[in-house]
Amino acid sequence: MGYRYELRFSGSGGQGMILAGIIMAEAACIYEDKMAVQSQSYGPESRGGASKSEVVISDEPIDYPKATSIDCMLALTQEACSKYHKDIKKDGILLVDTEMVAEVPQGDFKVYEAPIIESAREEFGKTIVANIISLGMITEFTGVVSKEAIEKAVLARVPEAFKDLNRRALHFGFEKAKELKGKE
């Protein structure tokens, strides 16, 4: 029987959550031989407002494209976290940004807290790479796609001049997730 793996990337419009979803899905279906669907939900605002991007990964054709029982969710704002965490499944993973999410929801899922946006700002001088750091962390936590596949997918989506920056951000994410897992 096939599996169905669901991810939700949530935050505020402009944080690159839709792009993060696209890259994750491309890692699965272009750079690995899996099936993937990416969908999104956002309000009429182009910036601000809770926004989410969902990815379903499977080894068989995917009919229902939306997440219903989430294996892993990322929340980069409090609003998105509070609004969207309810569908996380038992033993699923919630990754939140420490700076932005003060009220961390409790449930029968695992929570990882990391200063993702602060790291993007301090280590890379650009908050815009927070989504790529997050992708690195999620790949390390879940193993839903290989590190090679996610790296190829990231590099294929960014302009030449920013390839090195994004590669470093991704690897930074791998390392941070490894550290967090090590502390358990």
């Binding site: 993937a36 669907v37 969908s39 939306k66």
Partner: peptide
Amino acid sequence: EIVGHMREP
């Protein structure tokens, strides 16, 4: 909107 904005291979 769902299939219009959705991405698939």
